[in-house]
């Protein structure tokens, strides 16, 4: 087991609400470490709608998803939050001496006095294409990500999709593959035009195949893939392949949170509205993932929840300290923490 990273508060999810929690906890002298499955902060704001305008952030008549995240990162910088990206919190257990131990899907271990779940709609996972029986091939012949390119050397590859992931991996794996076929639903691509042009040049040179269609069935047994049936504009055709790489974007799944012993209501975590604590003392849930009477899934509601949660978390981490309510406009001690006064 790797050595544990210790922090006051472990925040699961680095979306806008998780980020703002760093601010509210920071004002109360609590240090935070955030873990997110994406490779950067922002959650849905940066993954789903970085350029889309948001109109209901107080004092911002209009702000884009990316700009909101950039501003939050600037706002929490004085508190020096630590981030671990590309990781999912897989396990969470209560320690006998108090606090919690969290383990990521890659085996890193974190120990924290308080855990805050700010996981929004759940963790982003690759979308499984709707091909009957595909589950049986996953991990053997079907992969949603490329961890080691060497694993694909000499294989007959079928790559499906029209975005940057599909095109980038087509270009990167083509030299290694025995044969590579790219299948996409139409002749237009979302991917960068340069990648598309390079792919088309390889097709012209006879170094790969590009076919229009949608995969509808797989052939093989015991997880060993032999081929795929593709529905094309002029009828079905077969592509011989030993590996399939579908790139259909990301979807949100609750994931391992369901196994942490929390009461759940559908895929949401019920909390009280004073502390935003779950059924497990010391584990809080804020933002889109929680539920209480009157809940609104708005970013601004998540900000409010973060502020109240921080008060409750403070009492757990520093039980003997008296919490004095202060305003950032007038309190020199808060301003010192923010680095705006000496």
């Amino acid at each position: 087991m790797k050595e544990a990273i210790r922090t006051d508060v472990l925040i699961v999810g680095a979306g806008p609400v998780g980020l703002f929690a760093v601010f509210e906890l920071g004002l109360l002298d609590l240090k935070c470490h955030l873990i997110d499955i994406l490779d950067r902060p922002g959650g849905q704001c940066t993954e789903l709608y970085p350029e889309k305008p948001i109109y209901d952030i107080p004092a911002w008549p209009v702000i884009s998803g990316q700009e909101l995240v950039d501003r939050l990162m600037e706002q929490i910088r004085p508190f020096e939050p630590q981030f671990t990206f590309n990781r999912m919190v897989a396990g969470l257990e209560r320690l006998p001496e108090g606090g919690f131990r969290a383990t990521t899907d890659e085996g890193e271990v974190f120990e924290a006095k308080v855990v805050v779940i700010a996981a929004g709609g759940g963790s982003f996972q690759p979308k499984r294409p709707p091909i009957p029986g595909i589950e049986a091939y996953e991990g053997k012949s079907v992969f949603y990500a490329v961890r080691r390119m060497e694993d694909f050397r000499g294989e007959d590859l079928l790559i499906v999709g029209g975005g940057d992931s599909a095109l980038d991996w087509t270009l990167n794996l083509q030299p290694l593959a025995h044969r590579l076929t790219l299948v996409h639903r139409r002749a237009e691509f979302r991917a960068a035009p340069d990648s598309v042009n390079r792919m088309l040049a390889l097709k012209e040179a006879g170094k790969l195949d590009f076919r229009i269609g949608q995969v509808k069935a797989l052939e093989g047994e015991d997880g060993i893939l032999r081929g795929a049936v593709v529905k094309g504009p002029e009828g079905d055709f077969e592509v011989a392949c030993t590996r399939l790489l579908p790139f259909f974007g990301l979807t949100m799944k609750l994931g391992p949170i369901a196994d942490w012993g929390l009461n759940l209501d559908e895929n949401l975590i019920p909390v009280d509205t004073e502390r935003f604590e779950t059924s497990q003392p010391g584990i809080f849930a804020i933002g889109d993932i929680n539920h209480y009477p009157g809940k609104l899934k708005l970013i601004l509601s998540g900000f409010h929840e973060a502020a109240l949660m921080a008060q409750a978390a403070k009492r757990i981490v520093h039980p003997h300290e008296k919490v004095v309510f202060q305003y950032t406009t007038s309190s020199t001690s808060l301003q010192r923490k923010l680095g705006v006064t000496r």
Partner: peptide, 14 residues
């Protein structure tokens, strides 16, 4: 429109 057409790539049985 083009943006919607791009997003339809992610849908099932288009």
């Amino acid at each position: 429109e083009a943006m919607e057409e791009d997003m339809l790539d992610f849908a099932y049985d288009v």
